[in-house]
Amino acid sequence: MSVLIFAELDEGKIKKSSQEAIFYGAKVAQMTGTSATAIIIGAADESELASAGRFGATRVLHATDSKLTEPNGMAYATVVAAAAQQESSNVIVLAKSSLADAMTARLAGKLKAGLAANVIALPDLSAGFQVKSSIYTGKAFAYNDLKADIKILAIKKNTITPEETDATAPVNVFTPPLNEADFAISVKSTEKSSGDILLPEADLVVSAGRGLKGPENWGIVEELAKALHAATACSKPVSDLDWRPHSEHVGQTGLKISPNLYIACGISGAIQHLAGVNSSKVIVVINKDADAPFFKSADYGIVGDVFDVLPRLTKAVKAL
């Protein structure tokens, strides 16, 4: 028995959400009296790999291959399944991401595993293996009993706050199995905004809606986001109007995010929008309409004109 954590790399660094997953996995290992091993796929420095130990991994398996340099959900799932077999892992932890989403399902299929997605708390082991997950797009929670021998937990951002130590984990080379069928999808091109903070990973998010009146006005949103080191997001109408890319759309049919701080500018707060953001720790609403329903779900509110308020907030952040 052991806990296996898939730690995802972004440009050679372990993603923040994966550090959280390692810490979560280490806690589960502690609770079940076993050890936590991290599996990392792709090129990274030895010191970066060993840093998984800071979050509680007692060992790192490192798999590299020229065919595994680009994220590939199917091929990565094959590697993690083989690692799980080698380690006799009965719990596999992943941090939700577009890569992890593609992997969890294939893994569950391969291992006939019980699967909980959008996990938001450590398991309760007092009667079997029960985990709390977010359902109905954040409008409710479910307590899931995982009954299969192998359990896969895909955890949401901000499920747990990692505590770091100065421990390092020994790194073992893991020779990845390669299955030709996993490479049947060919990637023709990738368009990715570079340098920006990825929205699903962001601790702070500044989001704006139709109240901004047009895409040309997004400068004031971006400036506040830049001052805060926050990611930018938008409401559905804004992405439908093509003012902003769909990858920024948060809500019922877009991304569901759970940052520490969500600042909504000129967004009225339809129930479908709230669904995507209501698990944020702190919500700030800025809207000129005092009757905007969003104020009812906010922690802080300002009734005011975003064109006046946002630049002043940016200035105040810079003065901190």
């Binding site: 019980g114 709390k132 929670f141 995982l146 104020f295 906010a298």
Partner: peptide, 16 residues
């Protein structure tokens, strides 16, 4: 392989 034992609604946010 997985069943739901029970459901829960989120605690309401404090006042704004």
């Amino acid at each position: 392989l997985t069943t739901v034992a029970s459901y829960e609604l989120p605690a309401p946010r404090g006042s704004v």
